[in-house]
Design a protein around this nucleic acid. Structure first.
Length: 406
RNA sequence: GGGCAGGUUGCGGAGUUGGUCAAUCGCAAUAGACUGUAAAUCUAUCGGCUGAAGCCUUCGAAGGUUCGAAUCCUUCCCUGCCCA
């Protein structure tokens, strides 16, 4: 077993902030001395059915804790998800149904163990305790926090100042998350830097309940491929770990250059010195950014699929986007007979049939702007009727291709 | 409970002396040029139907006034601010 100091050094990699480092060291020392693993908490609100790369950041940190002999406690926020975490949001979240939450939760559990060691993980639902909460309990909990302290926080403050509504239940969220820490007797809670307040509330509540307060370990927020917002399902800028190798690779290639190194640091196993080396080489331009990004794509596809898939995705990418060749596997599009008039098909109908567009106006725009090709020939008028044959290839926009089947 | 302000097309936000408003502009988005499916830049598009010209449905909801309403009136719903 590693010493407390050694553990701390390892655990600090890729961490944005610790509240507090000293306390963590003390806990680790005690753990080593008493041979008692620490309890590491991560709360998950199963708001979406998908697990994306942003979420793997804390999961990978948890795995590291496990490798050091500690115990992970995953709290599935079956109740909190119904409230919706207001952190970083500028509007009230839609409340989810219990059924929706539970079905997402089940899905999450499967995905989580792609990364975590099942034997060293406890999974609990916070509904276990919150469903038994009486109104008195709620009041008691609510009395532990002041309105001023809530309003101090950016996300409430901004909304308050700009006059956007804040519903009362949103104030309860930090308390619920905090109370989870009490229930599971957490030693450490992981979260993104936007979780700081919620984690600190947990510390207060633990202290009140006579427990030693947990340490907060905050990880950087992973930006989505748009480079502007946090990777999140609701903003639709995320890369799911279930994505096909081709998709995953492609999405990674589309991230802004400025994000590459963060992705390396937060998402891959590439050793830090090597990342610094890459950084250096980028700076003095002895390596092309595209090559670095391709490496990133290969690393991640290898992690979630296989090395073979990664290479295939890379080669395919080169072929299609750099070589401007056709993708290897095109989706087939079967054109129903009724679309044919005198043996011809209106291009707009093909696009509609392919669901490449939402409506006909959009289809026309796409054609007018030169985004549609038949067998590499640009179609320049939306009024075009096409004589198509089996195997003809239609391209709609940057990356949608279809092979026609009659 | 009282007073005030407001609800516009994904978001922000114009437009309220009634017609010229499918509705300025910015962001986002999509397409094209340039590229490395990066960034930046430039161009175009950005309610729907109609195989151009025409039509239809939109400005919180429902009614009403009018030849004509996002703009006026009534009721209702929702939000914020101030006072209690």
């Amino acid at each position: 077993m590693k010493t407390a100091k050694e553990q701390l050094e390892l655990l600090k990699r890729g961490v944005a902030d610790i509240v507090s480092e000293k306390e963590l060291l003390v806990k680790l020392e005690k753990s080593v001395k008493e041979k008692k693993p620490l309890r590491i908490k991560l709360g998950i609100d199963p708001t979406a059915p998908d697990v994306h790369l942003g979420f793997t950041v804390p999961l990978r940190k948890l795995k590291q804790f496990q490798e050091l002999g500690h115990r992970v406690v995953i709290i599935i926020g079956s109740y909190t998800a119904m409230v919706g975490d207001p952190s970083g949001k500028n509007a009230t979240r839609p409340q989810l149904s219990y059924e929706g939450v539970m079905s997402n939760a089940k899905n999450y559990q499967e995905k989580i163990f792609k990364i975590l060691n099942k034997d060293k993980t406890e999974v609990v639902y916070n509904g276990e305790w919150f469903s038994k909460f009486s109104f008195n309990d709620v009041i008691r909990l609510a009395s532990k926090i002041t309105v001023a302290s809530l309003l101090e926080h950016d996300y409430f403050d901004n909304r308050y100042k700009s006059g956007t509504p804040i519903a009362l239940h949103e104030f309860i969220y930090p308390l619920m998350q905090g109370w989870d820490s009490v229930e599971v007797k957490a030693d450490v809670e992981l979260g993104g830097t936007d979780q700081r307040f919620n984690v600190i509330v947990g510390r207060d509540l633990q202290r009140e309940s006579g427990q030693e307060p947990q340490v907060g370990l905050f990880l950087p927020i992973l930006m989505g491929p748009d480079g502007k917002n946090k990777m999140s399902k609701s903003l639709n800028n995320y890369i799911s770990i279930d994505e096909s190798p081709k998709e995953m690779f492609g999405k990674l290639m589309s991230i802004p250059d400025a994000l590459m190194l963060d992705y390396f640091k937060l998402l891959t196993e590439v050793p830090l010195p090597e990342i610094s080396d890459i950084e250096e080489k980028l700076k003095n331009q002895s390596i092309h950014p595209k090559e670095v990004k391709k490496r990133l794509g290969r690393e991640l596809v290898t992690m979630y699929h296989s090395k073979k898939d990664a290479e295939a995705a890379d080669i395919e990418f080169e072929r299609v986007f750099s070589g401007k060749e056709l993708p290897a596997d095109l989706p087939e599009l079967i054109l129903p007979q009724q679309l044919f008039k005198n043996g011809k098909v209106w291009i707009i109908n093909i696009l509609m049939e392919a669901k490449a567009v939402n409506n006909k106006s959009e289809a026309k725009r796409l054609v007018e702007q030169g985004g549609v090709y038949l067998n590499n020939l640009k179609i320049d008028s939306p009024a075009t009727d096409l004589e198509v044959k089996n195997g003809d290839i239609v391209k709609a926009g940057k990356r949608k291709y279809f092979r026609l089947k009659l």
